[in-house]
Write a protein that binds this DNA or RNA. Sequence first.
DNA 1: TGTAATTTTGCAACAATGTTGCAAATAAAA
DNA 2: TTTTATTTGCAACATTGTTGCAAAATTACA
Lengths: 144, 144
Amino acid sequence: MGTKQQLTERISTLLRDSKLSITDTRVKILELFMRSNGALEHSDFEKLAGKSFDRVTVYRTLQTFLEKGIIHKIPTTDTSVRYAVCKSECTEHHHHDHHVHFKCETCGHTTCLDETDVPNIQLPKGYAMHNVEVVVNGVCKSCK
Amino acid sequence: MGTKQQLTERISTLLRDSKLSITDTRVKILELFMRSNGALEHSDFEKLAGKSFDRVTVYRTLQTFLEKGIIHKIPTTDTSVRYAVCKSECTEHHHHDHHVHFKCETCGHTTCLDETDVPNIQLPKGYAMHNVEVVVNGVCKSCK
DNA sequence: TGTAATTTTGCAACAATGTTGCAAATAAAA
DNA sequence: TTTTATTTGCAACATTGTTGCAAAATTACA
């Protein structure tokens, strides 16, 4: 998985490529994303990581990452908003978010199933499709 | 579509079948659902319907309807929570929510595509599937 | 490397949304 | 009609998200 230094380097490159300043907050939030291998919600950032972040900064950082195509949102049925890092195909103005999200009902964790394709859906006449979001609820590997 | 009286009768039956008292608030909220033919969110109930409902009552009413299987939630990528009436296959402890939801990016309206089946999804080994939620974003018939 | 221009951060204050306890009002049961 | 059980509305509070602005950090440039 690489050393801590390699991770930091990878993050710096990502920020530079997105034309964003490299700041402590951005680096630490991206570290959390890269390490978690799943979806994070807002409250996770205030708890985790020893240092506690200012709420406003977290909101603005996530907003910025969204706009730059670094992260994407995952649909939920409650008021929480979940985010996960995008794969390489995502760019500033186009999210290629064609994978399936899995939410475990036992541990509550949401993961991106990158290998699982979103199947084709036949819409009724007159509807134009831009984007499909799929969330599967169930029990994950670790919880069985 | 039936008269107003027929609608009221249908609603009363639904409430009685769910073992719920028939109250003004519940009847009026169900009327809104039946008439809207789409998803409603919390703020819709305070605006609509001439009479304005108490916020707390709306929250509790929606919660009750959810528990009785009268309505279901629709996943969103923001903090709003959207609800729609269930079809007949839904019961108190089992939601047969196997249809596709369509969200129009132009008018913002969310509809249930009852005729559009959720396709089968092949999960990686070790994952157990309970329920699949699909939201298609695009442009609806009326907005084209 | 040091300085100026730009961007980001954190605080304060506010707005919106969701929750809880309890007494009054309403609906159902007897 | 009266009693019992449920539901409602208010008040107070908790949580979550937003905006303006000055201080701090980062970047650009000499």
